[in-house]
Design a protein around this nucleic acid. Structure first.
Length: 547
DNA sequence: ATAGGGTTAG
């Protein structure tokens, strides 16, 4: 409606322009720019820009705002650079637009332009500049902004305080966030929700619940953001009952679960390995008429991988295609991983080649896929190519690469990479990396080396490390090393079901049943339980009706 | 004219 209005007004002005006898009022263009900004109408906005140039009228700060609100940072920057003394609106817009664009450093750079003349900051400036601080997870910068906020007396502004709470929580300092929250005199729903999100995202659902129940006592009503945060908190912890309880309370309050609610539920259940419930929820979502988006299917794909349902995975990819959506990095990596888990390297590679702007995770997923299927050479080749293309490997890359070496029996190469991780790539060695290398050494029968490595590890022995090692001992008949290790490390931490099972298998293979019994008793005493396995069944039902 | 909570890969 409003867009039609803008086009109509533009036509009117054009007509005036071609008849030189009539004047063009600057007020018209001003009004139009404002409209374009509000409606995020880039095309009419560009036309107004052209008219401004023709008539030599300059509304540069507003033009910056128009381009920025339309998400066209490049044009916004071009106009901005022409302004000799940009005002606070122009700067705020540039900070905001750069942050939206993911250029956090640049956003903070624009903020710094203003810092010398701090007086020109307004309350908007601070809530805006906290965005890139969160984007960079830069607590130090965030704290600096906080101190400027205090110095300039903006801490009593609810929006600024809320942004500070959010920043502290997201940068990992819940207690600072809580301090800001507690100091607030007037809180609104967003203040409560920001704090609740902080707790929910770090698994502190009990504390979130305490705040959640307090909201009403303060005379405020939780809104859909609040409900969704609580649901996501329970769901991502795998607490089905908790999530459903909030879910039904939400509907009891007359609120209808929206796309975000469903997405939170679905990805929460997938993350906690509850594939069937995730599928059921997805169907329920479709039944209620809420349309899925890329986030939905990104959350659902791991469930296909978990149950080996390649058919469902393919169906989802088909749906993405039919909806005319691009395969972004998130859904791309999820698809690669799903195909990998379902055994189709070819499909995985197809998806990999389709991702236009690959990120580390895309490369990791594909390298991992080749590794899992024993295609070491392809895996190594991709690892090389990734670096040639300027992509920095991260800790996950090395898990993929090392396990590929392990499965492909490339011990020397694997060890070389393992040793170069810290120095060459600056990546910390984690327990997962150790597990890969121990596995690699054991597979190739280098049991003494494996023994030395495990013994010298600066970290606690984990299930998979112990499992790989004891299994190696069993296969290569090194009960001596197994027992030495058991004495040295197992006694330190006894909650290792995997280790117990493999060790007891070693004894069982030699017919030493009294030792097996002995271990079983220790397991019982220490309350160590083996996780039950599950079967991989493909069901025939489909999600989407094909036309 | 500009600001503040929610869902996504390994």
């Amino acid at each position: 409606m409003q867009k039609v209005g803008i086009h109509g007004a533009l036509y009117h002005i054009m007509k005036r322009l071609v008849s030189p006898t009539k004047n063009l009022y600057p007020g018209y263009l001003d009004f139009l720019l404002q409209k374009c900004m509000k409606c995020k109408a880039l095309k009419p906005g560009k036309q107004v820009h052209a008219l401004l140039l023709l008539t030599h009228i300059s509304f540069n700060a507003k033009l910056v705002g128009m381009y920025a609100s339309c998400g066209n940072v490049k044009s916004a920057r071009l106009v901005f650079d022409e302004i000799p003394n940009p005002n606070v609106f122009a700067v705020n817009w540039m900070v905001l637009a750069s942050a939206y664009n993911g250029d956090f450093e640049e956003a903070i750079g624009y903020f710094s332009l203003m810092r010398d003349s701090m007086k020109s900051c307004n309350k908007f400036t601070f809530s805006i500049v906290l965005k890139p601080c969160v984007g960079l997870l830069d607590l130090k910068k965030g704290k600096q902004v906080h101190s400027i906020v205090n110095k300039m007396g903006f801490e009593s502004d609810v929006s600024v305080a809320n942004a500070l709470i959010d920043m502290y929580c997201k940068c990992g300092h819940l207690s600072y966030g809580r301090r800001v929250f507690d100091k607030m005199v007037n809180r609104d729903v967003a203040s409560w929700t920001s704090m609740i999100c902080g707790y929910c995202n770090t698994g502190k659902i009990e504390e979130a619940m305490v705040l959640f129940e307090r909201i009403r006592l303060e005379g405020l009503e939780p809104n859909d953001f609040t409900w969704n945060a609580m649901i996501a908190g329970y769901a991502s912890r795998g607490d089905t009952n908790g999530a459903f309880e909030i879910f039904s309370r939400m509907t009891g309050h007359g609120l209808v679960p929206d796309l975000v609610t469903w997405n939170a539920m679905i990805s929460g259940f997938t993350q906690s390995q509850r594939a069937d419930e995730a599928f059921t929820l997805f169907r329920a979502m479709l039944v209620t008429g809420v349309k899925p988006n890329l986030v939905t299917v990104t959350g659902l794909l791991p469930a296909c991988g978990l149950t080996g349902s390649i058919r469902r995975g393919r169906e989802i990819q088909g749906w993405i295609h039919r909806m005319g959506l691009d395969i972004n990095v998130f859904v791309g990596s999820a698809l690669i991983d799903m195909y990998s888990k379902c055994g189709s390297v070819k499909d995985a590679r197809n998806v990999f080649d389709m991702i236009y702007a690959k990120n580390v995770a895309s490369w990791n997923a594909m390298i991992g896929c080749y590794g899992k299927h024993g295609m070491v050479d392809a895996s190594m080749e991709l690892f090389e190519r990734m670096q040639e293309e300027g992509m920095q490997p991260n800790e996950v890359t090395f898990i993929a690469v090392l396990s590929a070496c392990s499965h492909g029996d490339l011990v020397e190469k694997g060890l070389k990479i393992f040793r170069s991780m810290k120095e060459t790539y600056g990546v910390e060695i984690s327990k997962e990396h150790y597990a890969c290398v121990v596995d690699m050494l054991c597979r190739s029968g280098k049991m003494v080396e494996a023994y030395e490595l495990v013994r010298g590890m600066p970290i606690e022995i984990t299930d998979s490390i112990a499992g790989a090692f004891f299994n190696g001992c069993k296969i290569h008949g090194r009960r001596d090393l197994a027992e030495m290790m058991a004495e040295e490390r197992l006694t330190m931490d006894l909650k290792k079901p995997g280790a117990f099972v493999t060790l007891s298998n070693i004894y069982a293979a030699d017919g030493e049943w009294h030792q097996v019994e002995n271990l079983r008793n220790i397991m019982k005493e220490k309350n160590v339980h083996k996780k039950p396995g599950f079967s991989w069944v493909e069901k025939n039902d489909t999600f989407f009706e094909k036309k």
